[in-house]
Design a protein around this nucleic acid. Sequence first.
DNA 1: TAGTTTGTACTACGCACCGTCGTATCAGAC
DNA 2: GTCTGATACGACGGTGCGTAGTACAAACTA
Lengths: 149, 149
Amino acid sequence: MPHSAHAPRLGDLERVVMDRLWESTVAGGDGFAGVTVREVHEALEKDREIAYTTVMTVLDRLAKKDLVTRERDGRAWRYLPADTREALTARTMRRTLDDMEVTDRRSALLHFLDGASTDEIADLKAALAEVEARSDRPASRGARSRRPR
Amino acid sequence: MPHSAHAPRLGDLERVVMDRLWESTVAGGDGFAGVTVREVHEALEKDREIAYTTVMTVLDRLAKKDLVTRERDGRAWRYLPADTREALTARTMRRTLDDMEVTDRRSALLHFLDGASTDEIADLKAALAEVEARSDRPASRGARSRRPR
DNA sequence: TAGTTTGTACTACGCACCGTCGTATCAGAC
DNA sequence: GTCTGATACGACGGTGCGTAGTACAAACTA
């Protein structure tokens, strides 16, 4: 198992920038090749005053943390989220669970469910059903076996 | 929804100290009234060199973050973990899930399960069964309020 | 081709958090 | 009244993050 990189904590601005990248990913659809610093900056500037270089620094740090990747596009870089929001969320949750070295995992999960809405419980059951279906038919590879590296 | 207190991040030493408190809680059993700075210090000193006041500072900070509570005992304070390891773990996980504002929670949970062992899946199912049993018999009070020690 | 624009790279500053501890001080036991 | 065990308070260095300036290279443009 290729134990992926940890999931570092996100600062407030880092989070806003990630939000922006994720948003662009959705909007951009399949052939999405990332956004430039300028694009992120212009988007953020609609809400608050912020320097272009600030955005650049943040993007740079996110890249160093492997939360985003980047590809050259002429002189500029195009930044892409390394993971979906959902994958990063899951990784962070998992890291918490692993790091805390709980002795009674069932109890921890119980506490977790304690704070869950009925909607969320339904989501969880759906997810559970899905992994089970998956392991029932391990041959059906393709669509779902794509791991979010 | 009454969004409970946040779950601040733990530093390395803070974590070690919490570990110690939790350990004492288990060992101390029911009438456990907390440990003193001295006791924590003596325990930590077995593994590494560390000043008494360092331990005091850490305990103090943990108290300020409401991760531990303290009660007077003569001139000294006795410190107790505010939550079990399991409860804190769950709260931290929940916080991640809530804060990340996932649009597709089912997908996030699916990713989460992706990293789970079969053991863990079993734990999760057990926990799920438990909350369901609980909500099936909402009249059976006592059960809900009895904390899973 | 010289100036303007557009983009990055590098450096820096202030603040908050955390590991680390020293010093001051205070309440009791002798 | 001094000694001991305890706290309170303050401080310093490192690191992460928000913030941005400056220096410099490439590409357009007049």
